[in-house]
């Protein structure tokens, strides 16, 4: 049931991309996303696709894994495509039938926006598939740490993320158990209209929240007992060091940006 949901799906193999510094990967993923938006002509998609294929190869990722990441998006994709197709104003009419008119401009923008969406999601999945969640939060904390000087809670944010990652499986298991317990008392989660269904969730949600608060209290106590007192004076187990590979990856990504800008 609920247990089947997988989150933060790290793909545990060794590869060039896996070995990169998480900070480099986060920044380069952002650069990649910018590149996706820079390209306005359809030809700009060519270097991007090539770049994705090359990255997947260097990351030892089967293309199937990347496609799996797009699958949940198909409804939004179709929606984006259809919306752009029918509602973009243009002069070159390709098809006209009753009140529906498809223009060349419409088709172009439908393809462009759908491709962008696919590229963005693929870029993000490469990041999460090749980076352990722990490394990701570590990298994020280190990247945001300069902002801590102006009062931005970089450490707290990263700590919250890593605790969330730790407790998602525990709470999913718990939700599954509470659901079964209420079903054993005759609760019905599966039939009725929207309001009835929402109401039926109360016996699941109340215990789940009560339990989450109890766990939070326990955890805070346990963290304090283990000398936790915020980010100040804290050392870290994982030492992040930028290396030659990170430089290579950065150059590769810059090349992509250049290619996209050239093609326009």
């Amino acid at each position: 049931m609920l247990k089947d949901i997988t989150l933060g799906q790290y793909y545990p193999v060794e590869s060039f991309v896996h070995s990169l510094d998480p900070r480099a990967k986060i920044v380069l993923t952002i650069v990649f996303m910018v590149a996706v938006f820079l390209g306005s002509s359809l030809f700009a998609a060519i270097p991007i696709v090539l770049f994705i294929l090359l990255t997947a190869r260097l990351a030892n990722l089967p293309i199937k894994m990347l496609l799996k990441g797009i699958k949940p998006l198909r409804i939004i994709l179709i929606f984006t495509f259809v919306l752009n197709l029918f509602f973009t104003a243009g002069d070159t009419i390709l098809v006209e039938w009753w009140k529906i008119r498809i223009t060349r401009e419409g088709l172009m923008s439908a393809v462009r926006f759908s491709l962008r969406l696919v590229f963005l999601v693929t870029g993000a999945s490469v990041l999460t598939l090749t980076t352990q969640p722990v490394a990701l939060t570590d990298g994020l904390e280190r990247l945001l740490s300069p902002l801590a000087k102006i009062g931005f809670p970089a450490h707290e944010l990263a700590m919250m993320m890593s605790i969330a990652l730790r407790f998602i499986p525990t709470l999913l298991e718990e939700a599954d158990k509470i659901m079964k317990a209420q079903m054993a008392r005759g609760a019905d989660f599966e039939s009725g209209n929207l309001i009835q269904r929402a109401k039926a969730m109360v016996p699941l949600l109340v215990p789940l929240f009560v339990s989450a608060f109890r766990r939070a209290g326990d955890l805070a106590m346990a963290m304090e007992a283990r000398c936790y007192h915020g980010g100040r004076g804290r050392t870290r187990l994982r030492i992040l060091k930028l290396g030659k590979n990170d430089l290579l990856a950065a150059l590769g990504t810059c090349a992509l940006v250049a290619a996209v800008i050239l093609i326009g």
Binding site: P133, V134, R166
Partner: peptide, 10 residues
């Protein structure tokens, strides 16, 4: 409670 005192996911 063994579940409520481990902080990290590794």
């Amino acid at each position: 409670n063994p579940d409520n005192q481990l902080v990290a996911s590794i």
